[in-house]
Computed example of a mutant assay.
Amino acid sequence: MSMNLELTGKRVLVTAGTKGIGGAVAALFRQHGANVLAVARVKPEQLSPDAFVAADLTTIAGCDAVVRAVGERLGGVDSIVHVLGGSVATAGGFAALDDATWHKELSLNLFPAVRLDRALLPGMIAQGAGVIIHITSIQARLPLPESTTAYAAAKAALSTYSKSLSKEVAPKGIRVVRVAPGWVETEAAVSFVKRIAAQADTDYDGGKQIIMDSLGGIPLGRPATPLEVAQLIAFLASPRAVMITGTEYVIDGGTIPVV
């Protein structure tokens, strides 16, 4: 991005910040001069220990560890980008979703953001400024009944929570924004496409087409890249977006077919 986003020196926390969208977000913020702390369960070799904290954010202890690391290494935070999420449910529709599965989806897609926001927002309020970006999903509007009901419901809960939070903290100088990606060609997505292609006895492009067809089509003809999503997130976190709060930005190549 050639635009000066004025992110130099900003203290940024990125959950799931080593791969996929989160990895692209962390890398892009660093390119713009931000001081980034990435969270994941396993540290990649290329990251400095000072730029990473290992934690399982589906647990209270893991969230507490991240809050401590923010205080010790960043001395506070200017932006939080909650990327962590994913579906743990298998196919089978509603009948396959027992209580344990529902709890797993909420523990992965909702509670980490709630816990970290609750712990870190007081510091943002004290400094009178901050940005929180929640990564939701178009699945909240376009669930796939066979396989994503619980995931979609958890992301919808995150979206509603995010909207309410934005109304509460905007008068205190804090912006809260949602980004809803469609299909993004992350490392995990590539592996999934390969499995689908093998099952259907087709090539990689054929596997991609099967997935796009299951979504009802992508008018732009392809999934997004992690960098494309990261570029949107970086803009929204920057002072260039100072009047944007409480809304959701869809980046899905036109997948959602309605207004």
Score class of each variant (00 low, 15 high):
residue 2 S to E: 13
residue 2 S to A: 13
residue 6 E to I: 01
residue 9 G to Q: 04
residue 9 G to I: 03
residue 11 R to Q: 09
residue 11 R to F: 03
residue 20 G to L: 10
residue 24 A to R: 10
residue 25 V to A: 06
residue 30 R to Y: 00
residue 31 Q to E: 14
residue 34 A to Q: 10
residue 36 V to Y: 03
residue 37 L to P: 13
residue 39 V to I: 10
residue 40 A to S: 15
residue 43 K to R: 15
residue 49 P to Y: 00
residue 50 D to R: 09
residue 51 A to F: 01
residue 68 R to Q: 15
residue 79 S to R: 09
residue 79 S to D: 03
residue 92 G to V: 04
residue 92 G to C: 08
residue 93 G to L: 07
residue 95 A to M: 12
residue 100 A to G: 03
residue 101 T to Q: 09
residue 102 W to Q: 04
residue 110 L to G: 04
residue 113 A to S: 13
residue 114 V to C: 09
residue 116 L to A: 11
residue 117 D to H: 05
residue 118 R to Q: 13
residue 123 G to L: 10
residue 131 V to M: 03
residue 132 I to H: 01
residue 136 T to W: 00
residue 138 I to L: 15
residue 144 L to C: 03
residue 145 P to H: 12
residue 146 E to G: 12
residue 147 S to V: 14
residue 166 S to I: 00
residue 174 I to K: 03
residue 176 V to N: 05
residue 187 E to R: 09
residue 188 A to F: 07
residue 188 A to W: 07
residue 193 V to K: 08
residue 198 A to M: 09
residue 202 T to N: 03
residue 202 T to K: 11
residue 202 T to V: 14
residue 210 I to A: 00
residue 211 I to S: 04
residue 216 G to D: 00
residue 217 G to D: 11
residue 218 I to D: 06
residue 219 P to V: 06
residue 219 P to F: 07
residue 220 L to S: 14
residue 229 V to F: 09
residue 234 A to K: 08
residue 244 I to C: 12
residue 247 T to A: 04
residue 248 E to I: 07
residue 258 V to N: 08
residue 258 V to L: 11
